[in-house]
Simulated scan of single mutants.
Amino acid sequence: MGQEISGKIAYITGGSSGIGKAAAHHFAKEGVHLGLIARRKENLEETQQELETYGVNIAICRADISKPDQVKTAVQQFEQKLGKADILINNAAISDYGNFQDMDEEVWKHIFEVNVFGTYHVLKEVLPHLVSKQKGDIINVSSSNGLKATAGSTAYSASKFAIQGMSEALMQEVRKENIRVFTMNPSLVATKLAFGDKLEEKNEDKFMQPEDIAEYMVAQLKLNQRIFIKQSAQWATNPF
């Protein structure tokens, strides 16, 4: 038998759109209380209103995860309003594409500041919650680009490869605390991160949807505490 996640507390970064928002909806359906971090206040407020219909506790905080002081404030607010986290979903990320020689150094730095250091800042603040409970779950959303790089994605791929290394090492460190670290590596998902302003052109018969990834997250979290999936890749069946 697996385990129920109803009544647990999850903090989700990038929780107002794409995979993060879909995860919030699926978690709320399961009775999970939610703390959502994102950069756009209006999107957070809209998501909060949608989630209130599930009857769970919701807290939101506008924050840029590349800023450690903002992350610290958000986590403190969530702890006061909801309690310490049982689940952490590191989902927030940015991307930019272009040939290595053409990409500006500042773009490179910003991608790492958000994708790598942002994940670090959130982990630094939330991991003590899980350690104090001697139990918990962390899902780091990497990318298929973190397993196999593609031309034109040097900065993004490098940042996602870094997430792989950080996740692997962290997993080894915290297993003795009964904390599970899952790393997910989805291929192309129909989100603004991948499609930009052309998201309305997504083909639901071909491309993975945020809801697919959210369902997979729930399934992982419901596994018996004695087992976890260290690393997994999610692919569309026939996107051609």
Rank of each mutant, 00 (worst) to 15 (best):
M1F: 09
S6R: 13
G7R: 08
G15W: 02
S17Q: 14
G20A: 10
F27G: 08
K29Q: 15
E30I: 01
V32Y: 07
E42D: 15
E45F: 02
T53F: 04
Y54L: 05
I58A: 06
I60W: 04
R62L: 00
S66P: 12
D69F: 07
D69Q: 15
D69G: 10
K72P: 00
K72L: 03
F78C: 04
E79P: 10
N91C: 04
A92L: 03
A93G: 14
I94K: 03
G98M: 09
N99D: 14
F100G: 01
E105I: 13
E113D: 15
L123E: 03
L123D: 05
K124W: 05
V126N: 05
L127W: 08
L127R: 02
L130D: 10
S132G: 12
I138A: 10
N140Y: 06
S143Y: 04
S144I: 13
G146W: 04
L147F: 03
K148G: 08
A149Q: 05
G152K: 09
G152P: 12
A155P: 08
Y156S: 07
K160W: 01
F161H: 13
I163Q: 08
I163S: 07
Q164W: 01
S167R: 02
M171Q: 14
M171C: 11
R175P: 00
F182L: 07
M184T: 11
N185S: 13
N185F: 10
S187Q: 12
V189G: 03
T191Y: 05
K192M: 05
L193Q: 02
A194Q: 11
D197I: 00
E200I: 06
E200Y: 12
E201C: 02
N203D: 15
E211D: 15
M217R: 01
Q220H: 12
F228N: 13
I229D: 03
K230E: 14
Q231H: 10
Q234V: 15
N238K: 12
